[in-house]
C-alpha cells in the first residue's frame, strides 16, 4: 500500500483579521500550522500502513518555511517528504496548484492511494482533491469519514452527506479527501521529530524545473482565476438598543416588529413583501 498524502501549511486561521482601517491582512505574529484536515489525512495513511505495510510520501507545495509541516509529518510516521518550493509557484489558484501537485505525483510515480484533506482553512475552497484526481485520471471519494477496508484493489469508505452517509467501494488507485471525523490524530514521536529535523531527514525539495513544468503554467501566471479585491466582511446595521425593564423592552420589540410589518403570531411572519405577493 503506497500512499501519497497532500499537506498544506496554513496560518492559524481563527486569528487572521483585516485591519478595519487599512483593509490590510494582519498576519504579524500568527503561527503557521499543518492544515487540520491534512493531519487527519496523514493519520489515516499511517493507520493503513500499519495494517497493510507500504510507504507514505507526503507532498506539500509552499514557501521554504513549509519545511516545518513536512518535518512534522515525518514525525507522525511518513517515510519521505517532498516539498515543492519555487517562487514561480506563488500566487497559484486551484487550477495551477492542482497541475503542480499532479505533476509532482506523476514524478513520485508509485502509489495506490492519494489522501488529502477536504479543505484548507485559509483558501477554503475544497477544490484541490477533485482537481488532482481529475488531473491524474483517478476516481475520487470526497468527505470520507471512515475507511473501512482495503481489499483486492478496492477501498471501501463511508462518505458524509448533508443528511446521512453513503458507503462506497472504489477501485484503486484512487484519491480520497477526508474530514476530521475520520480519526483521532497522534502526536509526533519525539525521536522521529529529531530525525526529521536532522541532516539525514528524508526530505527532498523540488522546483519547477525538477518536475518539468514551465513557469507560465504554474503560480499566478498559470492561474485561471484571480483575486481582484479583498475586504473585511460587512457587519454594520443600524442597531437600536431597547431600554427599560423586561416587560417594556419586549413590548417595544413587538411594536418595532409590527411597524416593520412583521406580525409574528399570524401563522408565522408576514413581511410587507409577502403580503404583496412578491415572495413565494
Amino acid at each position: 500500500m503506497d500512499i501519497v498524502v497532500l499537506i498544506k501549511q496554513v496560518p492559524d486561521s481563527s486569528e487572521v483579521k483585516l485591519d478595519p482601517k487599512t483593509g490590510h491582512l494582519l498576519r504579524e505574529g500568527i503561527g503557521a500550522i499543518m492544515n487540520p484536515d491534512d493531519r487527519h489525512a496523514l493519520e489515516a495513511a499511517v493507520r493503513l500502513k500499519e495494517a497493510h505495510g507500504g510507504r507514505i510520501v507526503v507532498l506539500s507545495m509552499g514557501p521554504a518555511q513549509a519545511i516545518d509541516v513536512v518535518s512534522e509529518a515525518i514525525g507522525m510516521g511518513a517515510d519521505e517528504a517532498v516539498l515543492l518550493s519555487d517562487s514561480a509557484f506563488a500566487g497559484a489558484d486551484t487550477w495551477a496548484t492542482s497541475s503542480t501537485l499532479g505533476k509532482a505525483i506523476e514524478k513520485i510515480g508509485k502509489y495506490d492511494l492519494i489522501i488529502c484533506g477536504r479543505q484548507a482553512i485559509d483558501g477554503d475552497t475544497a477544490q484541490i482533491g477533485p482537481q488532482v484526481a481529475e488531473y491524474l485520471g483517478l476516481p475520487q471519494v470526497t468527505y470520507v469519514f471512515d475507511i473501512e477496508a482495503v481489499t483486492d484493489g478496492t477501498v471501501v469508505v463511508k462518505k458524509r452527506l448533508e443528511d446521512g452517509y453513503e458507503k462506497v467501494q472504489c477501485d484503486l488507485p484512487a484519491l480520497l479527501t477526508v474530514i476530521a471525523e475520520v480519526n483521532r490524530t497522534r502526536y509526533p514521536a519525539i525521536g522521529n521529530l529529531i530525525d526529521a529535523c536532522g541532516e539525514q531527514a528524508p526530505i527532498t525539495i523540488w522546483n519547477a524545473a525538477d518536475i518539468g513544468v514551465m513557469t507560465c503554467d504554474v503560480g499566478l501566471a498559470g492561474s485561471l482565476t484571480h483575486v481582484i479585491r479583498t475586504f473585511a466582511p460587512k457587519g454594520g446595521r443600524q442597531t437600536q438598543m431597547l431600554e427599560g425593564d423586561t416587560g417594556t423592552v419586549v413590548r417595544t420589540l413587538l411594536e418595532k416588529l409590527r411597524e416593520n410589518h412583521l406580525v409574528l403570531t399570524d401563522s408565522g411572519v408576514l413581511s410587507a413583501e409577502c403580503r404583496e405577493g412578491k415572495l413565494s
Binding site: 483558501g123 482565476t225 479585491r229 466582511p233
Partner: peptide, 12 residues
Amino acid sequence: PAFGGNVMATIV
C-alpha cells in the same frame, strides 16, 4: 469568504 470568514475576496 476565505480565511474562516475573516476576509472577503472578489475573484474573476
